[in-house]
Design a binder for these strands. Structure first.
Lengths: 143, 143
DNA sequence: TTTATTGCAAATACTTTGCAATACT
DNA sequence: AGTATTGCAAAGTATTTGCAATAAA
């Protein structure tokens, strides 16, 4: 998986730097999680503090990774954006975000596909969003 | 309509200041539009420049208006939040946002109600979001 | 050797906050 | 008179950018 990414970088004429590898590893180890740039930065700083890297590099790398399609960015209403590795063996997904506990849940694609289809029929609007964010209360926080 | 708001403010022990009235009037005149704090500020500054007000007041007022339920805030991915007056004679609504031209369209509530119901059945997640933002391409920008 | 990439610090964009002055009620 | 509200400037957050130094290729 990581090797596939290195090839992808090479194909795009991009360099495989230690920083990019380290970030990628973190993302891989935390798949399913939704990390802030600050989290990635913190994890790399503490875990292995001979790894020097700047927060700006994290942001630049996330932008790059998003551009080449291996990371998806989830921008939040009132706080910093979250990033996660796109897994090729999974479908892209949409998120349910709990307003109380902040947890992110994934939404079944059958439901979203049906929703998109209805919007297209009704409005001629083609949903392109690969990660819709739906706010509400999760089953445990719901009163 | 504006008088109803003044009453609402009174009920909440909030004062009807010229700034609040002016902002409310702008929102009313621009209903259906989705204004940035900066827009409201600009409109009040140029239209009637004896109206002195600070941008901070616009932000504070929008926060307040949102809290008492007369304004809905639409926070955007890569730019500043937009605000609009909530019309009591209309249902709350969700938005389709065109990634190309930036236009906002409203989405039929029957479609969203169905979607919410499916999410509740599937995940036990209760959608609270009164203005979902769905990104994609509108009928004219769609290729 | 060439040029992409980095770290740092400064800049930016949007929004919030502290505080003394002002003005509703 | 009393206190909610204001304007201003400063602070805060999240992110981006300029630039000289560094390091992949």
């Amino acid at each position: 998986m990581l090797n596939q990414v290195y090839h992808l970088l090479k194909e795009c004429n991009l360099r495989s730097t230690p920083q990019r590898k380290a970030i990628l590893e973190i993302l891989y180890n935390y798949k399913g999680h939704h990390l802030k740039a600050e989290n990635i930065y913190g994890l790399l700083r503490t875990k292995d503090n001979n790894k020097r890297l700047g927060l700006a590099t994290v942001y630049r790398t996330m932008e790059l990774f998003e551009k080449i399609g291996i990371v998806s960015r989830l921008s939040m209403e009132n706080s910093s954006a979250r990033y996660e590795l796109v897994m090729y063996d999974e479908l892209m997904h949409h998120h349910l975000i709990c307003l109380k506990c902040g947890q992110l849940e994934e939404l079944d694609d059958r439901i979203t596909e049906e929703f998109k289809k209805r919007i297209l029929e009704d409005k001629g609007f083609e949903v392109a969003d690969k990660s819709m964010k739906i706010f509400g209360y999760c089953s445990s926080c719901k009163r």
